[in-house]
Nucleic acid binder design. Structure first.
Length: 160
DNA sequence: GCCAACGTTGGC
DNA sequence: GCCAACGTTGGC
């Protein structure tokens, strides 16, 4: 199983919004970056776990956990000329863009801010630190575990 | 709202 | 196929 970090602007779609969706599930569409697309198309698998990250706010942070409930499939919002994610180069035959479905799991006990991630030398190699603009990022098992500890999700380590 | 980082586009 | 120009992201 792989781990990922998915970024979103909470003003656009937040972790709370995900919780309020039917079945707490939402298609993760509109990704228009090739590197992120490649992850969605080729690497993200059913059951993979997600760090849900809020960007573009005063205190950017990982706020909760989600999971993949459907692996990559064509992002049809690229075919809708009236939608904001329309791409004239995409077609049903060659969709270009891909999406996955994600489901709400649970919030972190404590959010893990970008500032605290940057301060942790064990997380210095995280994509979030090194390539901050990428909206879909792989997270290693070690990094995941550290975030879980920082987020108060590991028994006996709350309050650290 | 500024600006650095960086991905994408397009002229040659 | 190089690389300058341009657009977007996202932290601050």
């Amino acid at each position: 199983m792989n781990h990922w970090l998915f970024k979103t602007e909470p003003g656009c779609f937040s972790f709370e919004d995900l919780k309020n969706r039917s079945n707490m599930t939402e298609p993760w569409d509109g990704v228009r970056n090739f590197q992120a697309r490649n992850y969605l198309r080729d690497s993200v698998q059913l059951g993979d776990r997600i760090l849900f990250y809020h960007s573009n706010i005063p205190e950017p942070a990982v706020v909760g956990l989600a999971e993949i409930v459907r692996a990559g499939y064509p992002d049809t919002t690229a075919l809708n000329p009236n939608g904001e994610h329309f791409d004239p180069k995409a077609s049903a035959d060659k969709p270009i863009w891909y999406m996955v479905d994600v489901r709400y799991v649970k919030p972190l006990q404590r959010i893990v801010t970008l500032a605290s991630i940057k301060q942790n030398p064990l997380l210095a190699d995280m994509q979030l630190v090194k390539r901050s603009r990428l909206s879909i990022q792989p997270v290693t098992a070690d990094e995941w575990q550290i975030i879980m500890i920082m987020g108060g999700m590991v028994e006996g380590m709350k309050g650290q």
